[in-house]
Design a protein around this nucleic acid. Structure first.
Lengths: 241, 241
DNA sequence: TTTACTTTGTTCGTTATCGTACATAAGCGT
DNA sequence: ACGCTTATGTACGATAACGAACAAAGTAAA
């Protein structure tokens, strides 16, 4: 039996006090999260919350006509399933694995009782939730005002921040789904970024080769979200560890 | 000295248990909220939270270039200042009075200690926050996929739900600011709605004359948000009172 | 190797929204 | 009643994104 990866690759788990973490850790279940897996469906009751470690989860809203738009993404900085402790139990969105990888899950009831201790765990989860709110708000702004190219830059950077490598495994078709735009629009924008030597891509693999320039080309939205995450969750970016 | 209006015109306050409300009510300060007043500025520390009664507050994000977009609105169903109890203290958005009226405010510290009792008040505030999250998420979707006319319908309906009358006092220029579109686009959409006898407007006053048809013309976003508010906060729609 | 499939590239006409400019009209103060 | 200000109407070309259709190139399976 091989050793499992450290759950503390997830920054929220890592930010817990030892006493809190030790109480929780025996209940954490390791899970593999393959691309495209639906972790919850709109309106469905959540049994587990998920702490991604090497995976990225996309929160999507799917409209009646099938069109979709990404609301926010959750990676190793966060937790999927805030509606459990917020009290609503469900949300009108869908959660899909956007980048295959691993994570840990925890029974919803356990998380709820942790939350209801009203201590540091609660405070941490609420601050994370506020950061997530910022991400959603900024997505709304970005959808209103920015070009497909700017949004692609933002999306690549947000994803990159949640991965260890500088390569993202994702077809342009899927990116288009996330951004809620046409696949051709993504192709066009990606072509330009490649021509400018910021990225290299081929058949579902995108490698970012010039991150600073990519940041310049992105809209302010990326930065707003990043700064707000760092402000709200400094423990996730500390020197320690 | 004339009597002040009942704070319980605000549905959140109204949903509190008597014991909780009685503890809070002596600290509630009546405030008039004139159109355009900025209740807080991006990044600024919040001193008070606001419970609108007859006013509507708009949560706006203002971009570097001055363009803006509404993230969500808060009326008599809610509270302004969730970042206080979420732990972040500030947010990157601005809160502006969109519809003049009245409300009550409460010192931030008081609200925080109420929240930290970890009882029914906390649960209510968190459920409200989740409803607000839904509104933001749906705004993101709407900005991506729906026409100016559909968004105008949604906006009118959301505003109407938070007012006593069927008339909204608001110029097309201001609506354009909220929606993050051109004033001309709003004029055009409003003209069509008036031609179809759904609304009547003139110089800053919009009267909705055929609400059912307006709902038909709106996108699904309005309904998603409304249903979710009712699901999360049934106490605000109960028979009692 | 050949075939099938997936992914990306390209084109074309269509549409919605934009930016700008200016015209009309309604209300306000004097 | 007058002029001033604010609100709304309209027109124009420019642009970004759309929907649809198909070509080309890369990868995987037979």
């Amino acid at each position: 039996m091989s050793a499992l990866p450290d759950p503390r690759q997830n920054h929220l788990l890592d930010a817990l006090l030892a006493t809190d973490y030790d109480r929780l850790s025996p209940s954490l279940e390791f899970v593999k999260l393959p691309l495209g897996q639906v972790l919850y469906e709109s309106g469905q009751q959540l049994k587990y919350v998920y702490f991604p470690t090497t995976s990225i989860i996309s929160l999507l809203y799917v409209m009646e006509n099938g069109a979709s738009a990404e609301i926010a993404i959750v990676g190793n900085e966060g937790i999927l399933g805030i509606s459990l402790f917020m009290g609503g139990e469900t949300t009108p969105s869908r959660a899909v694995v956007q980048s295959a990888g691993e994570g840990y899950r925890l029974k919803g009831d356990l998380l709820k009782s942790e939350f209801n201790r009203a201590g540091p765990v609660q405070r941490l989860l609420l601050r994370y939730t506020q950061a997530l709110i910022t991400q959603m708000a900024q997505t709304a702004v970005c959808n209103r005002h920015h070009s497909v190219e700017q949004q692609l830059c933002r999306w690549l950077l947000l994803s990159l921040d949640r991965l260890a490598s500088n390569e993202i495994t994702m077809t342009q078709e899927l990116i288009a789904n996330m951004l809620g735009v046409r696949r051709e629009g993504v192709t066009e924008a990606a072509r330009k970024l490649q021509a400018a030597n910021l990225i290299k891509y081929s058949r579902g693999h995108i490698k970012v080769t010039d991150r600073p320039m990519l940041e310049k080309r992105a809209c302010e939205c990326y930065d707003v979200v990043k700064v707000e995450f760092e402000r709200l969750l400094p423990s996730l970016h500390g020197i320690a560890k």
